[in-house]
Design a protein around this nucleic acid. Structure first.
Lengths: 168, 168
DNA sequence: GCGCGTTACGCCCGTCGTAAGCATT
DNA sequence: AATGCTTACGACGGGCGTAACGCGC
């Protein structure tokens, strides 16, 4: 067994904890997540029970992180940030980091070449494999289940629409 | 707005995707997660719809990652690993990674010293700040974020029971 | 026929909001 | 009184298993 995934805290619990840890208040976390403080309170308690560790000190009517909670908050914040970044990046670059193009030489030199640098600048994570074909082909014939589209180089890269891709 | 937490994919979706990506099979992922392949299939589809990106190519009766899926899988795997590690580590070291002790010299040399190595061996992530005091003091007044506890050195470290600690 | 993925149908449990309670300021 | 956390209660919905289907081996 790799990692015991089954006992991972849910995203809801982790988000609630992270927001609470950052703001130092269940109420503030509730506002941020568009939930009630009641929900936050229950989620934090649930997380603590699941982990078997107290994450917050309840004093008076404020809460404060325990040392354990602080360390956990750092890790969780980083993990959530990574998931968020990966998900957003995926929506921005549906190609998966590599884009294979088969084009006609004339098209490449006249139309594509001048636009490439700007495109690459807007999609930093992306690598492009350019292949020039001498004959016109309907996109890439040997690509399984490709969604043909005009992979818009003028697009600002915000869309969730389909794009063409190949794989090796 | 820090990170748009509200639209993060759930742990279930991510776990299902990660297991499927690693095994290359929904059925295998289902076995690993103690779910039905039906559940995995639905989760993957839900994740794809939520992200607006195809993660798997359905061919014949097997599935293959798209390039986008591969990149996403790497990030998700790392994030899940981090959450898992943080959670497990927290259960093992409820003190928050650092344990500040203020003890009497005699106690330190006679009782504590012989037990320290074994304790450190059982709690690999933990760092201990030892301060010897000549007078009996209630914990360490000047140490920020110190966790006083009886920090049971004979304890096997698996419990979910409460522990007492202070904060600054 | 067997194995794998997809889809439809109920059901259950997790999680929410509301609301009441308690303590502190 | 006002604020902040806790807890009880009822309702809604996401996510599950079962089962039936299609499709290659």
């Amino acid at each position: 067994m790799q990692t015991p995934r089954r006992l991972l805290p849910s995203i809801g619990l982790l988000s609630a904890f992270e927001a609470s840890a950052r703001t130092g208040s269940f109420t503030a976390a509730a506002r941020e997540l568009n939930l009630t403080q009641s929900a936050i309170s229950r989620q934090i308690r649930a997380l603590e029970e699941q982990l078997g560790v107290e994450l917050f000190l309840r004093e008076r009517q404020t809460v404060r992180l325990t040392p354990a909670g602080e360390a956990y908050a750092r890790d969780i914040r980083e993990a959530l940030r990574r998931i968020s970044a990966a998900s957003l990046n995926l929506r921005a670059n549906p190609f998966g980091g590599t884009l294979n193009l088969a084009i006609l030489p004339t098209f490449g030199t006249r139309w594509l070449a001048p636009r490439l640098p700007d495109f690459l600048a807007r999609h930093p994570g992306i690598t492009i494999n350019l292949a020039t074909r001498l004959v016109e082909a309907d996109a890439a014939p040997d690509v399984p289940q490709s969604a043909r589209s005009r992979s818009n180089f003028n697009d600002r890269g915000g869309g969730s629409r389909r794009r063409t891709y190949e794989h090796d």
